[in-house]
Simulated scan of single mutants.
Amino acid sequence: MTAAELENGRMAANSAWAQREHRQRIVIIGGKELDVHTGDFGELTAELQRALDADPQLLGNRNVFASLTPVAPGRRGASPGSRGDAGRGEARRLSAAQREAIGYAGEWFAYQWLRRKYRAANETSWVSTNRRKFFPGLPGLPGLPGDDGLGYDFRVGSGRQPLLFEVKASQSEGGQIELGESEVRAAQRNAGSDRWRILMVTSVLEPSRLRVAMLLNPFSARGRDLYREEGGALRFSYGLREEHGQPLHPTCPRWPQCWWYRTKRCCGRDGG
């Protein structure tokens, strides 16, 4: 092999490494690449706000639990594949910076959703550490630090019975969630009521397809038969129920207000 060939091989290897490094640093929202490796999510927040301003109905109008249909039994421990980063499959292919950005985007949209649905929701309702990316505080007067060990990301309402919301975000259309140990403990402590809930934010980086669904506690009496455990008590599959005799539109984020339900025509948001 000649020196020129060796140099060409070295340059090709360096180029491939640089491309992989670049792909691990960015998220794409609305067709725009954002570098999230620095941990500064100011530009990401601005893009999320821009998407919401462009479509105020993006988060929908419903404030009820999504209808779930029991998931058919399957082989325990089956791999979730690429069902989304709310499970393990896609998360394993993402960098730590990308996972952090997707989680923050999900909580940001959840915060906006909660403020629109619950009069008691405000800045203090956001209790995870992601709140610091949106509410950093002032010099000499830092904001509330947040706590990721509570088992939920938002606490809405005062008194002894606030509502507790755990947020799960996915780049896909969902279908699977994974709970951490503190989340399992919180869900089990509140299994006798509907206080602990999941807010599932799907297609979180695609505003035209984004959807927020409020899901029942998988350990509650109403919820336990609607999920399938995948490899233990930390990972669950779920399925959204058909509404009004029609299957859910596969891409429309405005269920069930979508015209497709009333006219059997696509609303056109997916280009169909």
Score class of each variant (00 low, 15 high):
177 I>Y: 07
15 S>C: 02
214 M>S: 13
195 R>Y: 06
260 W>G: 08
141 L>E: 07
89 G>H: 14
6 L>K: 02
152 Y>D: 04
129 T>M: 08
146 G>P: 03
195 R>I: 02
141 L>F: 10
258 C>A: 14
214 M>F: 00
63 N>R: 11
222 R>I: 00
208 S>C: 09
119 R>Y: 10
75 R>C: 08
42 G>Y: 14
219 F>A: 05
47 E>K: 11
29 I>V: 15
195 R>G: 04
17 W>Q: 11
186 A>G: 12
177 I>V: 15
266 C>G: 07
65 F>S: 12
85 D>L: 14
48 L>P: 02
156 V>T: 08
95 S>D: 00
54 A>W: 07
26 I>E: 00
134 F>I: 10
217 N>Q: 06
33 E>G: 02
214 M>Q: 14
264 K>S: 10
153 D>F: 09
31 G>K: 06
114 L>W: 04
23 R>C: 12
79 S>V: 04
81 G>P: 06
25 R>E: 06
175 G>C: 13
120 A>Y: 10
130 N>T: 01
186 A>N: 12
197 R>S: 13
7 E>P: 01
195 R>L: 10
124 T>D: 12
9 G>N: 00
37 H>N: 05
12 A>H: 00
134 F>K: 11
47 E>N: 04
67 S>V: 05
105 A>F: 07
257 Q>M: 03
237 S>V: 02
263 T>H: 04
246 Q>Y: 05
145 P>F: 01
211 R>H: 07
44 L>K: 06
158 S>G: 15
113 W>I: 02
40 D>W: 05
208 S>Q: 14
237 S>L: 15
47 E>S: 10
39 G>I: 08
107 E>V: 04
238 Y>S: 12
221 A>S: 08
236 F>P: 11
136 P>R: 07
53 D>G: 00
222 R>T: 03
4 A>Y: 00
220 S>F: 00
15 S>Q: 09
